[in-house]
């Protein structure tokens, strides 16, 4: 078991550091993520950029693009360890929970970095006006945490199976759907300039769903990791 809070934080930080250095050298997941989101953005922009989109349509397009690119890249965090056979040394050196926390936070950083490039381009290439910017940024951050918190454990599951990529999409999309619906609803409210109160139902789901998923994942991760 983990001995102390500071020991846990240090171990998790070491996992994050290792992943960031390795990602910076190889760009294993990031290249796939950024290219996927750019290509889908281009397709959407060419196809419908001429029309005046309503708030619900542009919110749906935004989240579909973000979720699809996440699914194309986020499974890499565990698949890479399995493919390069570094998983055994990780199992020897670190506690399961620190690995999970490290991978979760690393994926979060990766997604937020991706969005910091993708979302400005989205506003440039598509005719979208954002009425309530603070609500919009809050929804982006909450949606990203939810997206990563739900899919990290699924990435660990599919890394153990054959046909990894296809299975990751099949397993994560249904579980992500409630989150996707809430994120689209809240983003639509923010585009049309609604207040926080108008988006409160969606925000409740956006906060509670990831919390429960992450708590369940921390209980279950050990069984996958030591499999």
């Amino acid at each position: 078991m983990v001995k102390s809070i500071s020991g846990f934080t240090a171990a998790a930080a070491a996992v994050i550091h290792k992943d960031i250095v390795s990602e910076f050298r190889t760009r294993y997941a990031f290249n796939a993520l950024i290219m996927f989101s750019l290509v889908t953005l281009t397709v959407v922009s060419i196809a419908i950029g001429r029309f005046n989109l309503t708030a619900d349509l542009s919110a749906a397009f935004l989240w579909v693009m973000v979720f699809f690119s996440a699914v194309s890249g986020l499974s890499q965090s565990f698949v890479k360890e399995e493919e390069t056979r570094t998983i055994i040394s990780l199992q020897l050196y670190a506690e399961p929970l620190t690995i999970f926390a490290g991978k979760l936070i690393f994926n979060c950083i990766l997604m937020l970095f991706l969005e910091s490039i993708f979302i400005p381009l989205y506003f440039i290439l598509l005719p979208v006006n954002c009425g309530n910017l603070i609500l919009f940024l809050l929804v982006i951050v909450l949606g990203t945490i939810g997206l990563v918190g739900t899919t990290t454990i699924i990435a660990a599951i599919v890394a153990k199976s054959s046909m990894k990529g296809a299975l990751f999409a099949v397993l994560s999309f249904p579980i992500l759907l409630p989150l996707l619906v809430a994120a689209i609803g809240a983003t639509e409210t923010s585009f049309s300039g609604g207040s926080f109160g108008a988006a409160s139902n969606d925000l409740k789901l956006l906060i509670s769903y990831p919390v429960i998923m992450i708590v369940a994942s921390t209980f279950l991760f050990e069984y996958i990791w030591n499999e």
Binding site: I153, I154, S161, S162, L167, V170, L171, I175, L220, Y223
Partner: peptide
């Protein structure tokens, strides 16, 4: 998707423990 996961895993014990985790999730 639970059934899809089961059919993607060949090893019996691995299938059992991974699909158990997914069923709880």
């Amino acid at each position: 998707a639970y059934l899809a996961l089961r059919s993607a895993l060949d090893n019996e014990e691995r299938r059992a423990s991974l699909s158990a985790v997914y069923a709880i999730l």
